[in-house]
Simulated scan of single mutants.
Amino acid sequence: MAAMPTLLIVHHTPSPSMQAMLEAMLAGARDEAIEGVEVVVRPALAASAVDVLAADGYLLGTPVNIGYMSGALKHFFDQIYYPCLDATAGRPYALYVHGNSDTTGAIRGVETIATGLKWKRLREPLSIVGEVDATAREACWELGAMA
């Protein structure tokens, strides 16, 4: 029997906004209509190369800190980059970010590293600026369900 595909969600969730986004993502990813996918959730500072190598796809979440991805997500990439470089090439990923103003730098930073890893972007990054309202939570749910 083949192993169930695994979605690894790596997140840095230091704020109520990021928590609301993560909860909506998880609700989508774990929806009962979606069968046959194991969802593994790791904080960015705890996620390891072993987690990445064991997963079939990735959902990454970060706040925007001073115009860039969080230090925690950058640390995650620093830890897994070379151990996972060849073994994970071609795997799909998606990204969600939250910022109070501009999310461009954070998105560019993650996409640059993901390109170096040769990961394939599954869809446009989900960028939420300001309040995480019902529309934003719905978009997060959809991303979780789609990933």
Rank of each mutant, 00 (worst) to 15 (best):
Leu53Arg: 12
Ala27Met: 01
Glu38Tyr: 01
His75Trp: 14
Pro83Trp: 00
Ala136Gln: 02
Ala44Asp: 07
Glu124Thr: 06
Arg123Lys: 12
His12Ile: 04
Ala3Glu: 14
Arg123Leu: 00
Leu143Pro: 00
Pro125Gln: 05
Ala20Gly: 05
Ala72Gly: 06
Ala94Glu: 02
Ser17Val: 01
Gly116Glu: 09
Met1Ala: 14
His12Gly: 09
Glu138Arg: 12
Leu122Asn: 11
Gly28Met: 00
Ala106His: 06
Tyr82Met: 14
Glu142Tyr: 00
Val110Met: 12
Cys140Trp: 05
Gly61Asn: 03
Met146Ala: 13
Glu124Lys: 10
Asn100Phe: 07
Pro16Gly: 04
Glu131Val: 12
Ala46Arg: 14
Glu142Arg: 08
Pro125Glu: 01
Asn65Pro: 09
Trp119Thr: 02
Gln19Trp: 01
Gly144Glu: 08
Ser70Trp: 09
Pro83Thr: 01
Tyr81Gln: 07
Ile66Leu: 15
Thr13Ala: 06
Pro125Tyr: 00
Lys120Tyr: 13
Thr104Ala: 15
Glu124Phe: 00
Ala44Gln: 08
Ala139Glu: 10
Ala89Lys: 07
Gly90Pro: 11
Ala55Asn: 07
Gly57Ser: 15
Ala44Asn: 05
Ile34Thr: 01
Glu124Ile: 04
Ala46Tyr: 07
Thr62Asp: 09
Asn100Cys: 12
Arg108Tyr: 04
Asp86Gln: 13
Ile107Gln: 03
Thr6Gln: 11
Ala46Ile: 02
Trp141Pro: 03
Gly130Ser: 11
Lys120Val: 15
Gly28Val: 07
Gly71Leu: 13
Ala87Asp: 14
Leu59Ser: 08
Glu138Phe: 04
Glu138His: 10
Val129Met: 06
Pro5Ile: 08
Gly116His: 01
Lys118Gln: 14
Ser48Asn: 09
Ala20Phe: 05
Ala55Pro: 10
Ala114Ile: 12
Ala33Ser: 15
Glu138Gly: 03
Leu73Lys: 06
Leu7Arg: 04
Asp56Thr: 08
Ala147Tyr: 04
Tyr96Trp: 15
